[in-house]
Design a protein around this nucleic acid. Structure first.
Lengths: 344, 344
DNA sequence: CTGAAAGCGCTTACAG
DNA sequence: CTGAAAGCGCTTACAG
């Protein structure tokens, strides 16, 4: 029923070796033989069987992608970049979300053996280090935004969270904000920690008299929304909020708007990641941009054409938009909001 | 270097057949032999080679997923549901985005042969019918939200776009809106067409005196934003806008807010899909919800435990939130916005 | 319950 | 340039 190279060989009156060579574009085949084989293959609607091919050639043309999650625009963007590059290089993608449980993670990686030529792993959990590396079994691997303490010998592509977050803090301070609060990411997330540390250190250095103010978060819109509601209800609110990622910043923005607070007039807001939505909201979100699509594509490229085991540190750039503003500027919208409102 | 069942057989002093059987949990192995094999496998850190396994067993435990795109929350949700179910059934996912070009699509499907046990395909393009089915080569397939004219014999899971969109129109009319505009999806998208048709027919039936009013769109936030800007600049604006999906509705919402228009006081807004963000914005978006995660999971289940070739029509349910309101209600926010503003 | 052997569909030295 | 043959790592009737 399914046609194999043997069937083609029979019909084209050549050996399977010749069929294989012709199909794979090797040059040690006469044009006539090649043409014949190609014609027959076409006629018989031949389709190569990849499991067989990879068993004998030891190549799968497939890359395993292990992400912590598929939710949120960050991952859409990342997969998009990875996929684009994979397609360009004629590779396929075997994807998996990596459950936090180390044992589950091991299973995921194990299940990829013999199916992939290499691995792209994003594992920002703090404690995955040694465990992870144990399971890698010699497959070429590129880490993305992963906790590296124990994996320093693997090539990696990382966003420079520290520098990025620091830039946000500096920007807020330069604008004249003082009571700057931070909505944190998940506790066990390495990127969240880096961003938080940059916030704390930045505050200490740039505003030594102000105590850092950290609200718990978890990178989700919902949690950002909760934080925003909390902030709105405060008697003494922060004058600026830095959310550890854009998703939370957006949630926070919506909550503040809901409570009648204006961004940036009543409170400034900044995020991290520059997901596509952030440039469409009202107001547009000030954030830090690392080009997530390109990040994924770059990791894929490094996997396919290895260039050593160094860490690519991508420094994200500050994108100043409408959710923050310079308090020095005398502009119409700088007039306190109350003045716009009718007397009771 | 890489350890095979042969190595285990040698060390455990049994045949490869016994190793295979023990490892696969067949019951025709003595407990002693099984224990021995398992122990040795553990010691040698054996990991099965899946290409070999699937070549001989004719099963891959992998499902191919072909989506038109990875962008936007809709696809995050869908993949999430598919992945959850795949994991539960111990299957892997080979994903691909399907370029609109039929030839590229053929390549994608071809590349999956011999690597997957079945296919999950979402192909809402209008013209993919026959071409698609030609390439399927007998692999079990479940279609998701796909144009079915030529593929009626394949099992499918579809959102009932018509009923859903119709519910939105009815809701807007019941609220008392009359000048209801529609932001359409991509022209060649089958789902977009169904929603648009429901809008047109709904308008004709429920508001025969009002001419349908269609603004071009493409399902992206950006395009929704453009539509919103356009609407805001109109001398005679619609009193309600129905966007063919939530992404555009959100873009439109942000554009309207930017122009100082209030939703729903100045203009009502509704979408389609109920992506997670829609319940967080200010105002929260009235939309129609089909539980996208469950949609993906259901398609996966149907692939793994076939139940005929019928079409599962998922009727989405109306979710009334804050972006629409009943014009009859005398509520504080029903007072025209101008009254809230200070005299010039 | 166990093993020897064939076979899954392909690739690739090896001879010619 | 071409073909016969071995082999990739596994599964599975078939005998015993």
């Amino acid at each position: 029923m399914t046609v194999t190279i043997k069937d083609i060989a029979l019909r084209a009156k050549v050996s399977v070796a010749t069929v294989s060579r012709a199909l794979n574009g090797h040059d040690n085949v006469t044009p006539a033989a090649r043409a014949k084989v190609l014609k027959v293959a076409e006629e018989m609607r031949y389709q190569p069987h990849h499991a067989a091919r990879s068993l004998s050639s030891r190549r799968t043309h497939t890359v395993g992608v292990v992400l912590p999650d598929f939710e949120g625009e960050f991952f859409s963007e990342l997969i998009h970049g990875i996929e684009r590059e994979a397609r360009a290089q004629r590779h396929q993608l075997l994807v998996s979300s990596s459950h936090p449980d180390p044992k589950a993670q091991q299973q995921v990686l194990q299940a990829m053996r013999g199916r992939v030529d290499g691995l792209l792993i994003m594992s920002p959990q703090v404690d995955t280090g040694e465990q992870l590396i144990e399971d890698l079994t010699g497959l070429p691997t590129v880490l993305i935004n992963s906790h590296l303490s124990a994996c320093a010998e693997l090539p990696a592509v990382n966003v420079d969270n520290y520098t990025g977050a620091r830039a946000i803090v500096a920007h807020l301070v330069e604008c004249g904000y003082r009571r700057i609060a931070f909505i944190s990411g998940p506790e066990d997330n390495f990127e969240a920690r880096e961003r938080q540390q940059a916030y704390v250190v930045g505050m200490r250095e740039l505003l030594p008299s102000v105590t850092p103010w950290i609200l718990p978060g978890d990178f989700t819109v919902t949690r950002g929304h909760e934080a925003g509601e909390y902030i709105a209800g405060l008697a003494e609110r922060p004058d600026a909020v830095f959310a550890a990622n854009d998703q939370m910043a957006l949630g926070c923005l919506f909550a503040l708007s809901r409570k009648g607070l204006s961004v940036p007039d009543d409170i400034a807001l900044a995020g991290f990641d520059d997901i596509p939505l952030s440039s469409c909201t009202w107001p547009r979100l000030t954030t830090v941009s690392a080009d997530i699509v390109e990040l994924g594509a770059r990791a894929m490229r490094r996997l396919l054409v290895p260039e050593g085991d160094h860490i690519d540190l991508v420094v994200p750039k500050l994108v100043i938009r409408e959710s923050t503003r310079n308090l020095q500027d005398i502009a119409p919208h700088a007039i306190p909001r109350a003045l716009h409102q009718p007397a009771p």
